[in-house]
Amino acid sequence: MNVLQLFDVTKRIGPREIVRQLNMSVRAGEVYGFLGPNGAGKTTTIRMIVGLIRPTRGAIQVCGHDVERDPVSAKRHLGAIVENPEMYGYLTGRQNLLHYARLAGLDRIEERIERVAKRVGLQDRIDDKVKRYSLGMRQRLGVAQALIADPKLLVLDEPTNGLDPAGIREFRELVRALASEGLAVFVSSHLLSEVEQMCDRVAVLQQGRVIAEASVAELRAGAGSLRLRVSRWDEATAWLRARGFEVDGSDARLVVHHLDDARVAKLLRDLVGAGFDVYEAARTGGLEQSFLALTGAESGGDTP
């Protein structure tokens, strides 16, 4: 069963349709990337999933419960961070978690708090006031509050913003571990590298529309290029062009475009079969180029 499902979801604010006819589904144990440049509508979509705003049209289900009609059942299975995880700075980390645990109607709260604090590595600072936390610690506490009720669906809105590279790596490992325990994770990002490294499937959002949805493996294979160093490069170029490959190259290094896994394999076999020597072959671009090609835009931020 799908843990999260969006049916034709449209949100209009004023005269503008911020997101249009989204159809997505996320399965248990899957990390689903929601990739799009800034302003594409990722946060707006996430606000609808967690019940902060209502879709203008369409419906959203979490574990089969409609978020609008049966919000309490739907949210029982949900943990989320929307934009920055703002917490009560005048309370300690523990009091914050206690606050959220109470609202989820949980029992044995103390035990749970210890467990999630340990899981995100905050156990030593859990009794400090949150206003004294660093940004990284706040993000961790954000994850802790999302996990406190053992959700089936974790919704994370650009969760690595503001983390240092070590923090990002740690976070990625945590997300993968959670998914392997059967959680469905819906994570938005404007960073391709992040999605590529963290997710199983990805939807690419541009100006409120999903313009592509695929597994990361498919996308990676989809539109990459191949760099080649071969003997008799000018002859090889002509030979490849004659067979319909798109080739750039004015010296011994050739670049062949728009290749998926199958085409790469065939190209190398045929090239060798035709008597050319292949000294070097490297895949480049991959998802990055697909993303740029698909959105036709800058990815909107620096890869950390």
């Binding site: 967690v50 019940g51 902060l52 919000p71 309490v72 059942s73 739907a74 949210k75 029982r76 949900l78 989320a80 961070i81 929307v82 934009e83 920055n84 995880p85 703002e86 917490m87 009560y88 959220y100 609202l103 989820a104 109607g105 509050q145 009720a149």
Partner: peptide, 14 residues
């Protein structure tokens, strides 16, 4: 103003 309303409304409470 603080933004804490988001993590409050996300809970399974009407």
């Amino acid at each position: 103003t603080q933004g804490t309303i988001k993590l409050l409304v996300v809970r399974p409470v009407r």
